[in-house]
Simulated assay, not measured.
Amino acid sequence: MLNAFWHWFVIVGTIASILACWWLLHWTKGVSGRKGNEVGSTGHVWDEDLIELNAPLPRWWLHLFNLTIIFALAYLVFYPGLGNIDGILGWTQVQQLEQELEQADARQQEVFERFTDMRPEELIADAEAVGIGRRLFGNYCAMCHGSDGRGAPGFPNLTDDAWLYGNSWEQVATSIRDGRAGVMPPMGAALGEEGVLETVVYVQQLSGQKADPGLAAAGKQRYDTLCVACHGPDGTGNPMLGAPNLTDDAWLYGGTPAVLTETITNGRNGNMPAHRDLLSEERRRLVAAYVLSLSADTGD
């Protein structure tokens, strides 16, 4: 809704522009190409005898321009275009968009109804359900997890068997519906530089990487004091907290010494946004089916 100034500014500017076009057309139609037996010209001459003539528009062409002016005026009567005046049809682009979305939802609902009563395992095995889930995933999830679901640093790979919060149907559906907030608190101040180094080496040892035994042993003592509450005594993590398993080779941010040092020193904050208001329950179920089919396809 425009304020009073812009309301009248648009009205005056629009009407003045249309009237100016009409005046220009009817002014130019009076320009004659001939005066008596002489040919009218603009007075421009090139190469001694090349004269620029000044001839009026053909009448049929002029009438086409008149029709466009009539069309513009009729449009402004029926549709909005003059400030806050709605036009006699009351049409708005927002109204049309809402109607088109309602129509699209109604057509899509007919497709989704086939999957409403399907059990999770049936959805995962249904090619059409997985295909629709793949397209929804591409629209809502691919920007973080990648078009193939393999993720990126800070965004989980959905094609392996490493799950921060578990891979049951309910756990995956909850992640999509409500989102997740994973926090790794910074430990740099508590451990100190030497303690961070020792803990990094111990975490490398847990994951099967080559590690200095002495530093790893010292790191285990620090781990047992500060890290065991989340990652567990054996380092296999805790899905209830979203604490990752440190004994495999699946790394959310990376498993190099430099990245591990950064993680332990400064902590991490991960956020999976909730899609409760973005996707209906039917659509979320299809996305969950596609996500679980990605892991199943790997054979893990």
Rank of each mutant, 00 (worst) to 15 (best):
T116I: 07
V94E: 12
T116Q: 10
Y79V: 03
G83Q: 04
E48R: 12
H44M: 14
G33M: 07
I176W: 00
Q171E: 14
F137K: 00
G90A: 02
R107T: 13
I85C: 01
F137R: 00
V39P: 02
I51S: 11
L136P: 11
E113R: 14
I88E: 03
W91R: 07
D161P: 07
K35V: 08
I85F: 06
G166F: 00
E98I: 09
G149W: 00
F112H: 09
N84A: 09
V94I: 13
W169L: 06
D47Y: 11
S147A: 13
A152E: 09
L89M: 14
W169E: 04
P156Q: 01
G40E: 09
A55R: 15
L73E: 11
V45D: 07
Y75K: 13
G40L: 05
I124A: 01
L67H: 03
F78H: 04
Y140V: 05
G40F: 01
I176M: 05
R114S: 13
V45E: 11
N37M: 08
I124S: 00
L164M: 12
I88D: 04
I124Q: 00
L62D: 07
Q96L: 11
P56Y: 02
Q108I: 15
P153L: 04
F115A: 07
P58R: 06
G133I: 00
R177M: 12
H145D: 05
D178N: 14
Y75M: 05
N54Q: 14
K35C: 13
F137A: 01
I69E: 10
G83D: 08
V172C: 06
P56D: 08
E121V: 13
T92W: 10
W169T: 02
G133F: 02
E102W: 14
I70T: 10
N167F: 05
L57Q: 10
R150D: 06
E113M: 06
D148T: 15
P120I: 11
G149N: 05
M118P: 04
D86A: 15
M118E: 02
L76F: 02
L64N: 04
I176Q: 00
H44L: 15
G90Q: 05
F115Q: 10
R177P: 03
M118I: 05
E48S: 12
D148F: 03
L158Y: 04
E122F: 04
V130E: 00
V77M: 01
C144Q: 02
R135C: 06
P56I: 02
T174P: 05
A125H: 02
W60E: 12
A129F: 00
I85D: 03
A129K: 00
A129S: 08
G166N: 04
Y79K: 08
G87M: 02
P120Y: 09
R59W: 11
R59K: 14
E52F: 05
G131Q: 09
S147T: 11
E113G: 14
Q99A: 15
L164H: 07
L73N: 06
W61Y: 15
G149I: 03
V77G: 02
N66T: 15
N167K: 12
E128D: 14
F78N: 04
L62Y: 09
V45R: 12
A106E: 15
L50P: 08
W60S: 11
L101W: 08
G154L: 00
